[in-house]
């Protein structure tokens, strides 16, 4: 808390942050436990394919939210094109896809290809679904960061997403502007 309630007021810069730069970041984003300003992880969560159950993805979306992330929730029946263009516009750090379809190799592959085409391979893609071990190995070789099979504890998924280094934001703030 630091005792400076003045931070809480709208349009009221903090007394704690003499430099303009630190002030802006601190008033608009939340502080981590260490007291350092943190940029928010933005994650797109969606289901791809025809299967219409959304319970699982909703639980993951809420779990990530409860861990302090901003989740763009796209629900069920998304195509790889819809996923990729949404991820680009929303400028997310990661995409989590649930795929319960025999076509998982193709679908994941299409998403990766579309990201590559748009020079956005730095967006981390992970997934969940009933996927055989050997396919998991191939998917990881293709560039999928992690696959969670049914029954994977929510904490594990949260921990994984948190560990994703936000290379996109770093790249942007480092030299793009």
């Amino acid at each position: 808390m630091g005792g400076v309630g003045i931070l809480q007021y709208p349009n009221t810069p903090s007394l704690h942050n003499p430099s303009e730069k630190r002030r802006v970041i601190k008033t608009r984003s939340m502080k981590t436990a260490t007291g350092k300003p943190a940029r928010k992880l933005r994650v797109l969560i969606a289901k791809v394919g025809l299967d219409g159950h959304d319970r699982g993805v909703k639980i993951v979306a809420r779990g990530l939210r409860d861990a302090g992330m901003e989740v763009i929730y796209l629900g069920i029946h998304n195509t790889p094109e819809e996923i990729a263009s949404s991820a680009l516009q929303e400028d997310v750090d990661a995409i989590g896809l649930s795929i319960h379809s025999a076509a998982h190799m193709t679908l994941f592959g299409e998403v990766l290809a579309l990201l590559k085409k748009n020079k956005a391979r730095d967006i981390a893609v992970f997934g969940g679904g009933i996927i055989p071990q050997e396919d998991i190995r191939s998917l990881k070789k293709m560039g999928i960061k992690e696959i969670f099979t049914p029954g994977a504890p929510l904490e594990e998924i949260v921990k994984f997403v948190k560990s994703i280094k936000s290379t996109r934001r770093k790249a942007r703030t480092g030299n793009s502007a």
Partner: peptide, 28 residues
């Protein structure tokens, strides 16, 4: 969220018809 500093942003999901339209840019 009042409790976690995170959020589930559910506006885009209503705008599916425009996801792949270059003439529409949606930001949550």
């Amino acid at each position: 969220s009042l409790f976690s500093t995170g959020a589930v942003l559910g506006d885009r999901i209503r705008m599916r018809d425009h996801f792949v339209d270059d003439g529409v840019f949606i930001r949550s």
